[in-house]
Write a protein that binds this DNA or RNA. Structure first.
Ligand SMILES: [Mn+2]
Ligand SMILES: [Mn+2]
Ligand SMILES: [Mn+2]
Ligand SMILES: [Mn+2]
Lengths: 222, 222
DNA sequence: TCTATAATTTTGACTAATCAAAATCTTTTT
DNA sequence: AAAAAGATTTTGATTAGTCAAAATTATAGA
């Protein structure tokens, strides 16, 4: 059985793979998201390969094997279902749940997970708008793009928030940057690194590109 | 912060202390309940003492320090609240929950625990009839005694089941040996190591002493 | 009291996960 | 193409937790 360290590595490798649409994740990036030194990530890559979770290409990066991807998907399912439970059932705010789910995901059994899924009514998206993988490891890939990719005057619907940072999430909620919300891009200054959005009710939000990349949206035919 | 291994050791030491009403728990008993070799328990006792969780008396046993008892009580609270959640909210049977809570107890934060407590309506007993320690570490000690301690013709009420064994719990449920159920002892053969109980509805149950020691009850004035 | 048995401790070894710092590649810049 | 900067790997060390088996100590029976 995989340790929770292994589960964390695999899950983060999967998330990077999905987000960046790459197949080999470099060690430096892994070290960064997991908060370990690069040397640790390298030595871990070797044990992950030894146990058949990943393929390791020295000086290039790692990619998940089928077995590794399966476990990683399952971890993502656990994580996102737990986040949903924490918000829907226990009434947490969406900026508090990531750290909690990060621990619980390793402790919850398949049996409890399925009961929870039933109890929640088999939700398809987590509170941040991220799709919850199915029991079989399928994930609904949405064609949503970062806000920074849209042009001025586009009408769009917020789909999800990638960043799990507490402060950013709290700001996002106040700014109505939440899944389902409709906006129009009323300003975009590439040279000034800035985007301005407006709700139909007239509420304005300004975002730098760094932040705009962390919010995904779909064009919306008004 | 204590590792989950430390949390398990302390919790089991507390449970033995409460059950057996002793203050120094011998290493052999610790090794047994935790499923490790005696040598492991001894070396663990030394690290627990080094970190101020227990006092270790070589060749005698360990006792919890105030700090150790506090943490152990908190673990017991977590364990029993989680068991209650699994039965009340997710609909598990009482013979499946112990192993699940054994893992979850280490992953749930104080914050989630308190929300859960609210959600459940601040229960005072877990599904096995065991008291749930308060947030402050107080535990309601019931004067209940093992079935094997009662005499023939006593009317009694089942208070709790100590044994967490799946098979025994399943048997107990079928035999109506559940907290709150009323029985009369209609037979007790010390030499044959056997007790017979009857519900008011006439249902009979036979128990050996070994098993009768695992079921606690209080006399009931009929 | 002496000895057999039971309980406990010690010793030596191992795995997983980690870090710091030195060494080695790669990529980018002059 | 050489030097500088950046990324990755290696090396050597540490900690927690564990086991097997030998050594020690306590306990109980003869
Ligand atoms: Mn995690
Ligand atoms: Mn999420
Ligand atoms: Mn446990
Ligand atoms: Mn219980």
């Amino acid at each position: 059985m995989a340790t929770s360290t292994v589960e964390n590595y695999l899950k983060e490798i999967l998330v990077i793979t999905l987000d960046d649409e790459i197949s080999k994740v470099p060690m430096g990036q892994i070290a960064k998201v997991l908060g370990v030194t690069p040397g640790t990530a390298t030595s871990m890559a070797k044990s992950l390969e030894r146990d058949g979770w990943v393929r390791y290409f020295p000086r290039v990066g790692v990619s998940l094997t089928r077995k590794g991807r399966k476990l990683a998907m399952n971890m993502l399912r656990r994580h996102r279902l737990l986040e949903t439970f924490l918000v829907e059932t226990l009434g947490f705010d969406w900026d508090e749940i990531h750290v909690e789910a990060e621990e619980l995901e390793h402790a919850i059994s398949e049996k409890v997970l399925e009961k929870l899924d039933d109890f929640l009514g088999r939700p398809r998206f987590d509170p941040h708008g991220d799709p919850i993988p199915s029991k079989g490891g399928m994930i609904q890939q949405i064609a949503s793009k970062p806000l920074s990719d849209f042009e001025k005057d586009t009408n769009l619907r917020i789909e999800s928030i990638i960043d799990q940072n507490k402060e950013f999430l709290r700001f996002a909620r106040k700014a109505k940057l939440i899944p389902g919300q409709l906006f129009k891009i009323i300003g975009k200054e590439v040279c000034a690194d800035s985007i301005t959005l407006k709700t139909s009710r007239g509420k304005l939000v300004n975002l730098g590109f760094r932040s705009a990349e962390k919010v995904l949206a779909l064009p919306y035919e008004s």
